[in-house]
Nucleic acid binder design. Structure first.
Length: 430
RNA sequence: GCGGCCAUAGCUCAACUGGUUAGAGCGCAGGACUGUGACUCCUGAGGUUACCGGUUCGAUCCCGGUUGGCCGCCCCA
């Protein structure tokens, strides 16, 4: 055997048997987000490196050490996208969308790339579904987005997901808090872990969500970001909470929640799932408002709010739930004798044209092996075609789950199968 | 980037302290039953024991390296 070639570390193949779950999640998102008026966009997987440096933030781990960055043959520095918000913003600016409509709502889904140590639910090529709403600074826009996520999780029947909420203020009030926090942390330097002593210089907000118990104690006793909010930010946050309550959405205000990207202002939120299968990978999605990013990227001064969910973790949860999403054939056409092979082949084709999901063994083989294959395929019925059927034009639909066979003429197979399917699964698609 | 555990058939796992042709269950294929799957029984295919090197008369087992996987830290989705 020659040298075996394996896939790249942290990048996985998705095969039939599993892909159906992904399709289900993506299909649910498309339908639901469409209902909220969001249009799908697809941006390239590769962008100018500067886009992420300027939006995500030079000091973040993502840009600092996790990006797949390379020079193309024209010596341009390009990067595989590590997240979806910046590319969407770039597209929004590039196509002058703000000149065409006051409010724009987009969603996207696809692979993202980060060079990281692999863990449960965390891969180097991972998948996100995200949405962005541009042009509305009102808290109602934030609330609408969270409503959409909640409905999405509900549609997937995912329970035990909680919404954490915080406000980081804006350029009017954040600096004062920032100063106060650094002052406070410096006074308690000795009580912090080594990482946090470093963080207080580079990104003091991150000390707030350090997992270390001592650091948490220090952070808990320190200045509270919510008490520093200026009047407009305070009003915005209050309004958001009123709207969520009105929508019946449960949430927890966590003044120590911050996020890994620098561009957020005011609202930030996270959806956290508690499930043993996820281990420490409990965040399934998060987002927030980024009112200043567009201008920072050289675009118009439009406010925006967005979120992203990690599909890998959602799929992990759905796998745990044990639900099946595979679409089995309606009918397996089996052949009893060699002479019937071509007729059966044509019959299978005809039934597919009539809209049935039909499986057929092009190799022929013993009837027994075909029956086994039919059983394995999960087909609802098997139709055996042999000399008797060919001459009489009559056949039997054998229900693979057991029960009596249904006599049927070869001309009305599709209709009969459809009716049986309808009876068994009225909610199923046609 | 740091620390710990692990790697045997497609999958889940065996193989006494280093000792003959590395086994089982599941799955797959064929048959018992020549036009009927599942249950039962029989048979078969499928392995360079992740890779490279070392110690040894002899290595799946011991040692080193590489690659890959898992767990914790970090960070995140």
């Amino acid at each position: 055997m020659s040298q075996k070639i394996s896939g790249v570390k942290g990048m996985n193949d998705l095969l039939p048997g599993e892909i159906e779950i992904w399709q289900h999640v993506e299909g649910t998102a498309r339908e639901l987000f469409g209902r909220f008026g969001y249009g799908e966009i697809r941006t390239p997987m590769v962008e100018d490196t500067a886009l992420f440096v300027r939006s995500v933030g030079e000091e973040t781990d993502i840009v600092g050490k996790e990006m797949y960055t390379f020079l193309d043959k024209g010596e341009r520095s390009l990067s595989l996208r590590p997240e979806g918000t910046a590319p969407a913003a770039r597209a929004y600016i590039e196509h002058s969308i703000s000149n065409q409509e006051p409010v724009t709502r987009w969603f996207y889904m696809g692979p993202m790339f980060r060079y990281e140590r692999m863990k449960t639910g965390r891969y180097r090529q991972f998948y996100q579904i995200g949405a962005e709403a541009y042009g509305a600074k009102e808290a109602a826009q934030d609330a609408e987005m969270m409503d959409m996520v909640v409905q999405f999780l509900t549609a997937l029947d995912l329970k035990d997901v909680s919404l954490n909420l915080n406000s980081l203020g804006d350029e009017a009030c954040r600096p004062a808090y920032h100063t106060k926090l650094v002052e406070y942390l410096k006074a308690h330097r000795e009580e912090l872990c080594g990482d946090c002593q470093r963080r207080m210089e580079t990104n003091p907000l991150r000390v707030l969500d350090c997992k270390n118990e001592k650091c948490q104690a220090v952070a808990a006793a320190g200045p509270n970001v919510l008490e520093f909010l200026c009047e407009p930010c305070r009003a915005h946050f209050d309004d958001l909470q009123r709207k969520l309550t009105a929508l019946g959405i449960k949430y927890v205000v966590n003044p120590r929640m911050v996020r890994g990207l620098d561009y957020y202002t005011r609202t930030v939120f996270e959806f956290i799932a508690s499930h043993p299968a996820l281990g420490t990978a409990s965040t399934v999605g998060g987002g927030g408002r980024y009112d200043k990013m567009m201008k920072g990227l050289g675009g118009p001064d439009v406010p925006a709010v967005g979120f992203a969910m990690g599909l890998d973790r959602l799929v992990l949860l759905l796998k745990e739930s044990g639900r099946k999403y595979t679409a089995a054939p309606d009918l397996f056409v089996a052949v009893a004798d060699k002479e019937s092979q071509d007729v059966a082949f044509m019959l299978a084709s005809r039934l597919r044209r009539e809209g049935l999901r039909v499986d057929f063994d092009t190799r022929g083989g013993s009837l027994k092996s075909q029956m086994k294959r039919s059983d394995n395929s999960g087909a609802r019925f098997t139709l055996v075609l042999g000399e008797a059927e060919r001459t009489s034009g009559q056949a039997k639909l054998k229900p693979m789950a057991g029960g009596d066979s249904i006599p049927v003429s070869l001309d009305s197979v599709a209709e009969t199968v459809r009716r049986a399917r309808q009876a068994a699964d009225p909610a199923g698609s046609a």
